[in-house]
Design a protein around this nucleic acid. Structure first.
Lengths: 200, 200
DNA sequence: TTGACATGCGACCGATCGTTCGCTATAATA
DNA sequence: TATTATAGCGAACGATCGGTCGCATGTCAA
């Protein structure tokens, strides 16, 4: 029961922090949204800032588990179209998953205030995707699916535009469908530009 | 004197909002940073939110004047290297200019809370750069400097990675030098990938 | 049954928030 | 000069903030 409440508080904190920011969130609202008294929160956390730190711990651990482990790497596609499919599968998850979306929004809001949030933001928005796609592109080059080039540079050139459109989905959810279409179009464009065969 | 104070308040608001967010800023600190009494602010603005709205007005007008007008478009480069030079010139300005940097940070923080901030964020981070580079790339294609392709797609593929690295500079200013190097490297890579000649 | 512990609650605390008030000094207008 | 508007100030207001306190309840081991 206690453990459950603690997790529910963290979930509510993620939700409210990602909407209103840390400073814009008060614990009365937060606990009330769980049908909990204001003071009961202090049975589980020492302070508001303690919630923040615990939430960051959780986000960092979640990211490491979900995106950081090497064995979690998606397989190298066998065809150019396989890259598109893999990309769209990943993007669809990352855009629709409420928890991941709230995490991105929270990091956007708090990246300048907290050092750990700053580091996690860089990983979420930039280096993480790049590091994930570098070995994939290296593999595709070995298979002769992509022209030989610096795989890290290609990974950056591929993931940064996709990341920009994911941000657009966070900011303007009503454009999600349109953005997903743009991502797919960009992915095919990318293959046309860097691929070895003429047919996309 | 009055006009001057009003502008100084707006400047201080941009500075503090971009550091601590709207909710994380209090007017006592804000006015104190100007050597002004707490209550004097209300001679110039009706409320804290009024400051916010006036600041947004200013940011929107500033963006339109500085980046929105067609006559402000940079000329089409005559060589591939000219694109790199033009890019680095623009990026250097946009990364070092305190006001533009604070505007980006503010938009990152407040994009989910305010509709006008949301729209301006999309323009700042995505569509603005794209629209600026689309005619440039179209011109470079006409000049035979780039392979014929969809200039809008190329503009997106070019500006989104640069935008991502500009965000990195905002988030981790100590990496600015490194990021500028990466932008230049990416720019040359882009020309190698899409250009018509072999030499970068 | 009893004692200890965990978990919940409402009342309350001091601090801080945005904001208003009454007052003064200055500068422009008549 | 007399008047009026402007712009500054500190004190104080009510509301809300994060956080504490004492108490009630439920669970479970002894």
């Amino acid at each position: 029961m206690a453990k459950d409440t603690k997790e529910r508080i963290l979930a509510a904190a993620l939700e409210m922090f990602s909407r209103n920011g840390y400073a814009g969130t008060n614990i009365r609202e937060l606990t009330a949204s769980l049908g909990l008294g204001k003071s009961s929160m202090y049975r589980h956390f020492q302070s508001k800032e303690d919630i923040w730190n615990a939430l960051l711990d959780e986000m960092i651990a979640y990211y490491a588990e979900r995106f950081g482990s090497p064995e979690r790497l998606p397989p190298v596609p066998d065809t150019p179209e396989g890259l598109v499919e893999m990309t769209m599968r990943m993007v669809n998850v990352t855009v629709r998953d409420e928890r991941i979306m709230m995490t991105r929004k929270l990091l956007s809001i708090e990246q300048f205030r907290d050092e750990r949030a700053r580091d996690l933001a860089t990983r979420h928005f930039l280096t993480g995707l790049e590091q994930m796609f570098t070995p994939i592109f290296a593999g595709m080059m070995e298979k002769g699916l992509l022209r030989c080039d610096d795989p890290a540079m290609l990974a950056f050139a591929y993931t940064a535009p996709i990341s920009a459109l994911i941000h657009l989905c966070d900011r303007e959810p009503e454009k999600t469908g349109e953005a997903l279409g743009q991502i797919e179009a960009f992915s095919r464009h990318f293959i046309r530009a860097y691929g070895t065969t003429e047919k996309g």
